[in-house]
């Protein structure tokens, strides 16, 4: 059964449409990723799920409840990690946990939470003195403290160093075993690939793709990605006739990234040889979720 239903959701701010008819459903116990470039409408979508914003159109249901109209029944089953949201700077970790425990009817034991999150030796430390990773872990603890059914994590690992990021992934992965449903907003493909059962890809307020991470990669046709810096400029019309070509991206310094199949690579190599063009720093890789993401959010060739 779907625990979150988003049906033709629309939201605009001052005439600018930010979310334009997005629909998806999240199953119970799933880790569901919301991906997309900045301004694609990810945060607005989850804010409608959290009941922080009222949709202009469409319908959002959380465990069958309207997050805005049924706030009283939604907040006890929802745990939220918000982007850009601090705690009182002089509140200690212990005080924050005790305070937030008092908000919920049947709170989790914060001592065991803190132990799992590796914050036990930080209990007496004030929020303002915590490192970025410790703050994030505390936010995770606060999101979990009410024993929620659904946890929404918005840009959880932004600003963390790689080690802290991996530690956090490990923690979130552990939620799955407890049957907690997780909605994860991110712009790190690696994070989505690592954690998510399914991923919704947003592009300028609309749903560009909805699939498993593996399915998304496959949707690029089991693609092969060639990147190189040609010795002279190659224009799109020269590349377009290549067989099975899916997309061409141009990076700084004339570098080209061509997505296609092995066939595309063969044809590209012959074409380059025929025209006497050298391919510097040539790399050929099979596509990752990164490539699928860029492919799906890029303009058509």
């Amino acid at each position: 059964m779907a625990i979150i239903e988003v049906d033709r959701l629309r939201k605009s701010y001052g005439g600018r449409t930010v979310v334009d008819g997005v629909s998806f459903a999240v199953e119970e116990g799933e880790i569901f990723g919301l991906l997309g470039p900045n301004g694609a409408g990810k945060t607005t979508t989850v804010e409608c799920i959290e009941g922080l914003r009222t949709p202009d159109g469409g319908r959002v249901r959380l465990a069958g409840l309207d997050p805005v109209a049924d706030r009283k029944r939604v907040t006890p089953i929802l745990g939220v990690q918000l982007q850009h949201s601090d705690l009182q700077g002089k509140l200690t970790v212990r005080e924050a946990l005790e305070l937030y425990s008092a908000f919920y009817p049947r709170p989790a034991d914060w001592r065991s939470l803190v132990e799992r999150l590796g914050l036990t030796d930080r209990l007496g430390v004030r929020f303002e003195k915590l490192s970025g990773g410790q703050k994030q872990r505390l936010f995770i603890a606060l999101a979990l403290i009410g024993r929620p059914k659904v946890v929404v994590l918005d840009e959880l690992t932004t600003g963390l160093d790689p080690q802290a990021r991996r530690d956090t992934w490990h923690l979130v992965g552990g939620f799955r075993d407890e049957g907690v449903t997780v909605v994860l907003v991110t712009h790190f493909m690696e994070e989505a690939q690592h954690l998510c059962d399914r991923v919704a890809l947003l592009r300028s307020g609309t749903l560009a793709a909805l699939d498993t991470p593996a399915g998304l990669v496959e949707s690029t046709g089991g693609a092969t990605v060639v990147s190189f810096t040609p010795s002279r400029r190659l224009d799109d019309p020269e590349l377009a006739p290549l067989p099975a070509i899916r997309s061409v991206r141009r990076l700084d310094g004339d570098r080209l990234v061509v997505t296609g199949t092995d066939e595309t690579v063969d044809a590209l190599m012959s074409m380059l040889a025929l025209n006497g063009i050298a391919a510097r720093n040539l790399r050929v890789e099979s596509a990752s979720l990164d490539d699928a993401y860029l492919d799906l959010t890029a303009k058509e060739l």
């Binding site: 959290e50 922080l52 918000l82 949201s85 601090d86 705690l87 908000f103 919920y104 009817p105 009410g146």
Partner: peptide, 12 residues
Amino acid sequence: KGILRRMSTTPV
């Protein structure tokens, strides 16, 4: 600092 916002996602 978003402290009010964080609190508005709780039952309080």
